[in-house]
C-alpha cells in the first residue's frame, strides 16, 4: 500500500541529509519526498510518499521520530487529505498542434506559462493521478522537459489529525512530551 507521511523538522543544516540517509541506511524505498517551510518559523515540513507493508512504514515513522531534529511524524494515509502535486511540462508544439494542446490544458485546468516557437510550457496542479493523465495525453506530442514536485499533503479541516485536534498551526501545538509512537501508530 502507498503511504503518505508528513514530518515536521527543525530547519537546520544537514537535516534533509539525516532524513535521506536514514531511508538509505534502513533500505526504505521512497517514491517522492518534498520539503519546504511550514507555518512555524524555523520548522520545515516534509511530505514523504512510500510504498511498503504497514510494518515497514511503521518502522519508518518510528525511526524518523528518533531523529533529534524531527519534531513530529504523522502517517496521514488513512485520513481524508488534500493532496496536490505541481508539474511543469514543456511539450513540443508545432503550429498545427498548438491549439489541440491548449485545449487539453484547458480541460485539465492547467495553465500555459510559456510559449515558444516550437514548444509550450504547461503548469498543472492537482492530485498525482490528474497530473499523470495529462502527462499521458501530452506524451504523443513529445514532452521535451518535465519537472514534478512530488506530493504535498494536508489533513482536511475538522478531521482528527492525530494531534488532539490542535492542528500544527501554533507554537503551543508542538508536542512537548507526548510519546508520539505510542499514540499514533498501532502496535
Amino acid at each position: 500500500m502507498k503511504h503518505t507521511l508528513v514530518a515536521l523538522m527543525e530547519d537546520k543544516p544537514g537535516v534533509l541529509n539525516r532524513v535521506s540517509s536514514l531511508f538509505h541506511r534502513r533500505n526504505y524505498n521512497i517514491e517522492s519526498l518534498t520539503v519546504g517551510h511550514s507555518e512555524v518559523p524555523g520548522i520545515s515540513r516534509m511530505t514523504i510518499v512510500l510504498e511498503g507493508e504497514d510494518r515497514i512504514v511503521e518502522q519508518v515513522v518510528k525511526q524518523l521520530s528518533k531523529l533529534i531534529n524531527v519534531t513530529h511524524v504523522l502517517d496521514v494515509s488513512d485520513k481524508p487529505t488534500v493532496v496536490r502535486e505541481l508539474a511543469l511540462i514543456k511539450v513540443r508544439a508545432a503550429s498545427r498542434t498548438r491549439s489541440e494542446i491548449a485545449e487539453l490544458a484547458r480541460i485539465f485546468r492547467a495553465r500555459i506559462v510559456d510559449v515558444g516557437a516550437t514548444s509550450l510550457t504547461i503548469e498543472i496542479t492537482g492530485p498525482e493521478e490528474r497530473v499523470d493523465s495529462l502527462v499521458g495525453l501530452l506524451r504523443p506530442f513529445g514532452i521535451e522537459e518535465m519537472a514534478r514536485t512530488g506530493r504535498v499533503a494536508m489533513v482536511r479541516s475538522g478531521e482528527d489529525d492525530g494531534n488532539n485536534g490542535k492542528g500544527y498551526s501554533s507554537q503551543t501545538a508542538m508536542p512537548q512530551s507526548v510519546p508520539l509512537m505510542a499514540q499514533e501508530v498501532p502496535m
Binding site: M9, L67, I68, V70, P175, P179, A182
Partner: peptide, 10 residues
C-alpha cells in the same frame, strides 16, 4: 530545549 527529542513518559 529539544522539541524533537522526547523520552517515553506515556
Amino acid at each position: 530545549h529539544l522539541p524533537g527529542y522526547r523520552l517515553p513518559q506515556g
